[in-house]
Design a protein around this nucleic acid. Structure first.
Length: 500
DNA sequence: TTTGCCGGGAT
DNA sequence: ATCCCGGCAAA
């Protein structure tokens, strides 16, 4: 995962910009028009011909106007070459202007290659280079740089720096995105590594709403009853990228881009009734298409422009769309509608599908005919027949589970309803009451059996009082305001203010 | 990991 | 009696 992540970040390299750039400072969010301007800077760059080497080149590279990116390589110059699917360092042996080819000696591979000039870039940033590495804090992002594909990223930096960026990227990503990152099977190790790096989210499997560290922190830190705020949606890779340095990832985390792509469809669990759509994440676009190909084409054509060459930006379009799952009907409509939702825009598809937990028992049926009928007696209803919603009603004070889990492109979330405190059916008297209240609507047998199984054995509670479900002073006031706790709570005894 | 709170120690 | 906290178990 780490590799995937890094790759993505590196590729897009928006992350830094998000961090560094002033919120309003357009580049990443600039609309398409900018795209066209992407070519504009060229004169500026071209004029630097020999002196400005790699930086400008990077910029120019994107537009695919390879003709303009003439750079003079001198023998002995240390350069990077895109070779064999990865960057290699080498020394310039010869630069053939006629063919625009460069002979490079790859010290690593111990071989000499001849490649096109645009596939070669200088290793060191020259002092004369007009543009400092964009990642320098405080360095304003050149205004003309409209989109990520034009990010002029310092091709290479010291490894240390890169690692820092990596870490920053990972942290930011983890902080800003969704619970689940799609990871190819077998990437678990990497994934957990990412988690170790401060990753607050949980895996899809056990998203049991048991607040992540961030969430709980929020709870306790806040003024009591605050709802965990979802990560800022805009922190999605699209925006993140700009800040983060190299479009090309480091050697250390080299991954096969294809693998990423190919794995994509595999692990997704989708209801067959659900249609997978692909939504363009380009600012102010939101176009939704049915096919991945289509969306890619869309992004590429409309937003990225047609980059002829450059592996660099190959597949960058991947990061400008996200997979969205829609009900068939909705899909039909959605296919043409741009979803304006700003924050929810990033809402996790699977979640979006779930019907909001009916706040009132009675209304549930009629109010969401479509949805209800849509969610058959699937895992959800089987696993937590009635307890599911009754709990909602029961604990009105509890914030409804937030279903807006922002995701970034290619990051998916799945939440199992069963994970919700369905087990809460470990009823206290109160709970029983509420249950009976709601029971008429429920398939009695299911509910009953469920309850019966869990509740009676409370005999064990003699040993230890069943854990109360009510909010406790700690939760309500937070640790900061411990002085407001009831004495019992303060003494770590059973709370007496919020009895169960 | 966090939270609730029992058991038990200190004052 | 009051206060505190180690540590267990549930979540």
């Amino acid at each position: 995962m780490a590799s995937v992540l890094s790759r993505r970040l590196g590729k897009r390299s928006l992350l830094g910009a998000r961090v560094l750039g002033p919120p309003g400072a357009a580049p990443p969010s600039e609309p398409q028009t900018e795209l066209l301007e992407g070519a504009a800077p060229q004169p500026f760059l071209a004029s630097k011909d020999t002196s400005c080497q790699e930086q400008p080149k990077e910029i120019l590279k994107a537009p695919g106007t390879s003709g303009l990116q003439q750079v003079a390589f001198q023998p002995g110059q240390k350069v990077y070459v895109w070779y064999g699917g990865q960057e290699c360092t080498g020394l310039v042996e010869q630069h053939s202007w006629a063919e625009d080819k460069v002979m490079v000696w790859l010290s690593d591979q111990k071989l000499q290659v001849c490649c096109k000039a645009e596939e070669v870039w200088l290793a060191e940033v020259q002092g004369s280079v007009p543009q400092a590495p964009p990642l320098e804090p405080g360095t304003p992002v050149p205004a003309y740089r409209p989109v990520s594909r034009n990010i002029d990223v310092p091709k290479r930096k010291s490894d240390a720096v890169e690692m820092d960026e990596m870490m920053a990227a990972m942290v930011l990503t983890s902080l800003s995105c969704s619970p689940v990152v799609q990871s190819p099977p077998g990437a678990e190790a990497n994934f957990s590594a990412a988690r170790a790096a401060g990753d607050p989210w949980k895996e899809s499997g056990d998203v049991s709403d048991s607040g992540s560290s961030t969430t709980s922190g929020h709870w306790s830190a806040g003024s009591g009853i605050s709802t965990p705020s979802p990560p800022h949606p805009q922190a999605s890779p699209k925006y993140l990228g700009d800040a983060f340095g190299s479009p090309q990832t480091d050697n250390g985390f080299e991954t096969d881009p294809d693998a990423f792509l190919l794995d994509e469809p595999a692990p997704r669990k989708r209801k067959n009734s659900v249609k997978v759509m692909y939504k363009c994440l380009w600012p102010n676009c939101g176009k939704v298409l049915r096919s991945i190909v289509g969306i890619k084409r869309h992004v590429k054509a409309l937003h990225l422009g047609d980059t002829v060459d450059s592996d660099q930006f190959k597949r960058e379009e991947d990061f400008y769309y996200t997979e969205v799952q829609m009900k068939e009907e909705a899909a039909a409509a959605g296919a043409t509608t741009a979803d304006p939702a700003p924050a929810p825009g990033m809402t996790s598809p699977p979640l979006a599908l779930l019907p909001p937990p009916p706040p009132k028992t009675q209304s549930s049926g009629p109010e969401h005919p479509g949805l209800e009928s849509y969610l058959p007696s699937g895992a959800l209803s089987k696993s937590a027949p009635g307890s599911f919603w009754h709990i909602q009603a029961d604990h009105a004070y509890q914030a409804l589970p937030s279903f807006q889990i922002p995701v970034s492109p290619h990051i998916y979330t799945s939440i199992s309803w069963a994970a919700a405190p369905s087990t809460a059916s470990s009823l206290s008297p109160v709970r029983s009451r509420s249950l009976s209240f709601s029971e008429p609507q429920q398939p009695p047998p299911a509910v009953k059996s469920h309850l019966i199984v869990t509740s009676p054995p409370r005999a064990q509670s003699s040993a230890r009082k069943a854990r109360g479900e009510a909010k406790k002073c700690r939760k309500v006031y937070g640790i900061e305001h411990r002085d407001q706790w009831c004495t019992a709570c303060r003494w770590k005894k059973a709370c007496q203010r919020f009895l169960d």
